[in-house]
C-alpha cells in the first residue's frame, strides 16, 4: 500500500472538512468590536463629554453560560421631576451586534435601577452610558469572562 498517497488523501479530506467547518463557523466570528460600540455611542451622543461614576453596572466577572448572563444597572439620582435619569444604554464589544438594551426611566420609578439577562458570545466588555435629564452623561464598563458562548448553535 502506498503510504504517501494514503496520507495525502487523508490530509485532503481533513482540510476539506476543516474548510467546511470554517465556512459554517465564519458568520459566528463576524463579531462587533470596540469601534462598533464607539460608533453606536457616537450615533446618540457624538462629541459629548462623558464622566465616570454615578453608575453601578452589575455583571458577573465570570459567566459559565453565555446564553443567560444577568446584567443590572443602578444609577445614582434623586429621581425628581427636575433631576432624573432619562435613559441607560448598554452595549457589548464582542457579540455579533453591539446593542444589548436601552432602559428609559421616569421620575415615577423612584430609583434608576433595572435588570435583564443577556447573551454573550465570548469574553468581552460591557459598556453603558446613562443620560441624565439635564443632558449630563456618565459611562461605566465591566468585563465578563464567558466560559461557554451564547450565540448560534
Amino acid at each position: 500500500m502506498d503510504m504517501n498517497r494514503n496520507l495525502s488523501r487523508r490530509a485532503a479530506l481533513a482540510s476539506g472538512a476543516l474548510a467546511a467547518l470554517a465556512a459554517a463557523l465564519a458568520p459566528r466570528f463576524a463579531l462587533a468590536d470596540e469601534k462598533m460600540v464607539a460608533d453606536e455611542i457616537a450615533k446618540l451622543y457624538a462629541g459629548k463629554k462623558m464622566d465616570a461614576g454615578k453608575i453601578k453596572l452589575d455583571v458577573p466577572q465570570i459567566a459559565e453560560n453565555g446564553l443567560v448572563v444577568p446584567v443590572s444597572v443602578d444609577v445614582e439620582s434623586p429621581m425628581t421631576d427636575a433631576d432624573f435619569v432619562k435613559a441607560v444604554h448598554i452595549w457589548a464589544d464582542g457579540n455579533p451586534q453591539p446593542g444589548i438594551a436601552s432602559f428609559y426611566f421616569s421620575p415615577d420609578c423612584g430609583k434608576a435601577s433595572a435588570a435583564t439577562r443577556m447573551r454573550l458570545a465570548q469574553t468581552q466588555n460591557i459598556v453603558c452610558v446613562a443620560e441624565m435629564s439635564n443632558g449630563a452623561l456618565f459611562t461605566a464598563k465591566a468585563e465578563v469572562k464567558v466560559t461557554i458562548g451564547g450565540c448560534g448553535g
Binding site: 415615577d108 447573551r119 451564547g150
Partner: peptide, 29 residues
C-alpha cells in the same frame, strides 16, 4: 405604564436572552 402613564420602557436587541426578564422599580403614589 401605571394608570395610563409610562413609568419605564426598554428596547431589546437580539443579545437579550430567550424568555426575556426585566425588572425595574416604581415609587408607589
Amino acid at each position: 405604564e401605571f394608570n395610563g402613564k409610562q413609568v419605564f420602557a426598554a428596547d431589546w436587541h437580539p443579545a437579550i436572552s430567550a424568555n426575556p426578564y426585566q425588572s425595574f422599580f416604581y415609587k408607589a403614589s
